[in-house]
C-alpha cells in the first residue's frame, strides 16, 4: 500500500455522512408539517445542518 494512493473505502463509508444528512433533511421536512413551535424548530435544524456542513467544508483550510 503506497502512501500516495489512499485506500478505497467501502460504499457504506462513503455514504455514511450523505445518508445521515439526507435522513435529517427528510425528518426536518416532515416535522414542519406535523406542527408549529418545537416542530418548526426541529425542521430548521434538520434542514439547516446540511447547510452548516457545507459552510464548514468551505471554511476549512
Amino acid at each position: 500500500m503506497s502512501a500516495r494512493r489512499p485506500q478505497r473505502h467501502s460504499a457504506w463509508v462513503t455514504l455514511a455522512i450523505p445518508l445521515a444528512l439526507a435522513a435529517l433533511t427528510l425528518a426536518g421536512l416532515i416535522a414542519g408539517l406535523l406542527g408549529d413551535g418545537l416542530y418548526d424548530a426541529f425542521a430548521w435544524i434538520g434542514l439547516g445542518v446540511p447547510l452548516a456542513v457545507v459552510a464548514r467544508c468551505w471554511m476549512r483550510k
Binding site: 489512499p6 485506500q7 473505502h9 455514504l15 455514511a16 455522512i17 450523505p18 456542513v53 467544508c57
Partner: peptide, 17 residues
C-alpha cells in the same frame, strides 16, 4: 449522481475540496 458519487469519492474523505 449519487451512484457515481460512490466510486468517485472512494479514496477521498467527505467534503474534500
Amino acid at each position: 449522481g449519487v451512484v457515481l458519487y460512490v466510486p468517485f469519492m472512494a479514496r477521498l474523505p467527505f467534503g474534500a475540496l
